[in-house]
Design a protein around this nucleic acid. Structure first.
Lengths: 342, 342
DNA sequence: AACACCGCTGAAAACGTTTTAGGATGTGTT
DNA sequence: AACACATCCTAAAACGTTTTCAGCGGTGTT
């Protein structure tokens, strides 16, 4: 009962252990495992078997130290709670998942100090690149200091147009929403949305206004109803709209929460959705939109796709390419609160 | 205009650069920067100034390779979309944030293969420990293979009682909900909840039943109404309950979504909440509970705290301690759907 | 003036891998 | 039999840091 000579004590196996077990040098073992260099087939098999037996996993630190590449990416988000970051984060993880890349997650909480600190930590760990995820579409200041690795900004673009930003086309989103309401035969359309301080609110409103104008129409009330993003504003604003403009037959809401509030009021005042009036939301937040009564048609911003694209662009940049910024359209997810004609 | 001799080309500065600029050896520079060993005050200052000037950040790979500690933790979640993982994840990040630890995020999507793959990747990067976050409270199989670092399971406990699991006391949560309804003077209480296949549903129901029994009462309908976790089940079940048991004056819902559905039905049938009947939800999902009309009292599971505790216990385990499993109580967040007496 | 001692600094080894350059072995050619 | 040449393998250097140990100069003691 002698102790198996090549089995290491109580530590992860090293390449040395594999080499010893296979009866070759570490250099040969390395080449066999990585499929590089000239190694005889029989030798390669022997090494691979040894590695398998010890369940050897190469030390990524040593490898990274030598090669300069760590196979590691920093993901800097500004609000982990927010529901915008998560799908983006998932998309990015997807883009990496298949390969050999792992993601460092950091939440800066929208705090510049914390952000700087996290960037430091990430750089000292020699990440190959950074993805910066924002929670609103207003441009954000670019990362401070000179960052020695590629950076891709998602959702919230960098204020510096020279940076790579992957964003949502909110103007187009507003257009899509109005086009859908028009396709439903609606002609008296109001727009109830969130805080005017948000670029997203202004962009969507601009897209909506332009599309209505192109159809020879104007917004009910002549301007968007800016307020807050939540249900109570939807309830209050809807009440105003139906009282002041009883002819309204379509409402474009800046968020699904607003849409739910709007639906509630319409129900209270006896307006039938979608027969008498159509309602469309924004964000396609499943939990909110898909469980209302009736279920809410909404604009989906394809955030997961956005994240995936960001991941791919970052890869490209790491490999030396110079990707440019991109803006992606949303799509209409039709549910029961709108009734397309035909 | 000679090139500053100590300024490196176009690469991150190394300790060598700092040492050269300060006119000392790398050994001394290292000691000065880390506050270790005997370094004369004047020398230390000179080194620190040089480091500052070059904005030197030590290469964590090299450091980790030597010390065996990477200051890195793996966070393995099974559903990033789910709203349970996120607060936990935030709490854990908080627990680490202040220190020198960074978090590797991986989403296994509930897929065992992918999970194994991610664990491999994390181990090859020599994480110091692992946190495994589940999305439902049913025990999960422990990580396969022998993991050479400490592991802490959160929310979903490991099926192996020898592992460290940090969980929510769902039985206690059921008790809290019923106690609150009793404190509101309610005596005819129904329980509408999600799928019976979920341990969480069964635990909460058990806690509720026990508490009612201790008060000499029984559940309206004599058993919980198991169904699904969403609003439509809340609507349907509430209709059944008020028709078959018109005496009902309190409803404990297994989720805030169910509670919203229940509220809608009660409104439709003209039952006044909270005067004629009290409703309490579970999860305290802000977006759902805090925007209903009336706003929903709910049980909060303190998930963020759970994550923070998991982080701390992992630290302790890394430092050689042997923490044990812990179960944490929830708390009642009172809103408008219940009206406490007095 | 010789000695011990203290405070500070530097040379070198170590962590585990990849890569380069060169060595050993064997095969075919003259 | 000597040579050129593949083929396969190994020794050693390198990545950037921390740590150990020895050395060096200066100070106080005898």
């Amino acid at each position: 009962m002698t102790t198996e000579s090549a089995v290491p004590a109580n530590r992860p196996p090293r390449l040395t252990d594999v080499a010893r077990l296979a009866g070759v040098s570490v250099a040969t073992a390395s080449k066999a495992i990585n499929g590089r260099g000239e190694v005889r087939a029989a030798t390669r098999v022997r090494v691979l078997e040894a590695a398998e037996l010890l369940s050897f996993a190469p030390n990524a630190l040593a490898r990274g130290l030598l090669s300069g590449r760590t196979g590691t990416v920093g993901l800097l988000t500004s609000d982990l709670e927010g529901r915008f970051s998560i799908p983006i984060l998932m998309g990015a993880e997807d883009a990496f998942g298949a390969g050999q890349v792992s993601v460092f997650l950091c939440d800066a909480r929208g705090d510049a100090i914390r952000e700087k600190h996290h960037v430091q930590a990430l750089l000292s760990r020699r990440v190959d690149g950074l993805i910066v995820v924002g929670s609103r579409t207003d441009p954000r200041p670019p990362l401070a200091g000179n960052i020695p690795v590629p950076v891709v900004y998602v959702y919230a673009p960098s204020a510096d147009p020279a940076d790579i930003s992957i964003t949502v086309d909110n103007v187009g989103g507003g257009r899509l929403a109005i086009e859908h309401l028009l396709a439903c035969g609606r002609r008296s359309i109001a727009h109830i949305t969130g805080e005017a301080g948000f670029q997203a609110a202004r962009d969507r409103a601009a897209g909506a206004a332009a599309t209505l104008a192109a159809a020879g129409l104007s917004m009910v009330g002549d301007r968007p109803y800016f307020g807050s993003w939540d249900e109570s504003w939807g309830r209050a604003a809807a009440r105003m709209v139906v009282e002041q403009h009883p002819e309204v037959d379509g409402i474009f809401c800046g968020s699904d929460q607003i849409a739910r509030g709007v639906l509630e009021t319409l129900r209270d005042v006896g307006r039938d959705v979608p027969r008498a009036i159509s309602v469309i939301g924004f964000d396609n937040w499943e939990a909110i939109a898909a469980h209302a009564r009736p279920r809410v048609t909404s604009i989906d911003m394809n955030l997961k796709h956005l994240g995936a694209v960001a991941g791919k662009r970052l890869f490209a940049a790491i490999d030396g390419a110079v990707p440019s910024s991109e803006e992606f359209p949303g799509r209409v997810v039709i549910r029961e609160s709108t009734l397309p004609i035909g």
